[in-house]
């Protein structure tokens, strides 16, 4: 089974579930229509859902995914607090600037997740990605250092370690 076929099967199941969720699981007509819809969608747009070969130890990865979710919530709360302090501070001690960090992640999806997590965290915003050099350009509201290694440690590493376990 090639990646494309596997990807189509996954999309088929997912779209059927979503269609059923939008309508109802009990109606036979809807079930049949859902199968048609899922077939259509998986033939049309299912070919690029997955991009890498089969992975091992699926339960371990789901577990790490849950851990990642809570870690992410924690980081968002912390960053929210820091930005709130900056906002209410009458002096407004901010130092906005664009920095570059390096990442060790290899896959498209993990880099995307890292970039989006950084964007969702208040105070930082991913601007661009250079996938060849594994670099992320980030706008930071309070640039404390200009060193790439230091920035990578502060912003990237807290997500990167767990993401490594989840996706790679």
């Amino acid at each position: 089974m090639t990646i494309k076929t596997r990807s189509r099967v996954v999309v088929f199941i997912l779209s059927w579930l979503v269609y059923m969720g939008l309508t109802s699981f009990t109606d036979l007509q809807e079930v049949l229509a859902g199968l048609v819809v899922a077939l259509l969608v998986s033939m049309l747009a299912g070919h690029f859902y997955l991009s890498s070969p089969k992975r091992q130890r699926i339960f371990r990865r789901i577990g790490f995914g849950i851990i990642y979710f809570f870690r992410f919530l924690l980081e968002v709360t912390k960053a929210n607090w820091q930005v709130a302090l900056l906002v209410v501070n009458p002096v407004l001690p901010i130092k906005p600037g664009i920095i570059k960090i390096k990442t060790k992640l290899k896959k498209d999806s993990s880099i995307t997740m890292l970039a989006n997590s950084i964007t969702l965290t208040p105070g930082t915003l991913t601007i661009d990605v250079n996938p060849k050099e594994k670099e992320l350009y980030i706008h930071w509201i309070n640039t404390t250092s200009k060193d790439i290694e230091e920035d990578t440690r502060i912003i990237g590493e807290k997500f990167e370690k767990i993401l490594m376990e989840v996706v790679e």
């Binding site: 779209s15 939008l22 259509l40 747009a45 859902y49």
Partner: peptide, 25 residues
């Protein structure tokens, strides 16, 4: 960029399912 590409890749089927649902109903 790769971010937009990946998000599109993962989510575009959802758009199609929703569109077809709207048409069917």
């Amino acid at each position: 960029t790769i971010i937009v590409k990946t998000v599109t890749r993962i989510s575009v089927w959802l758009i199609f399912v929703y569109g077809i649902y709207i048409i069917f109903h």
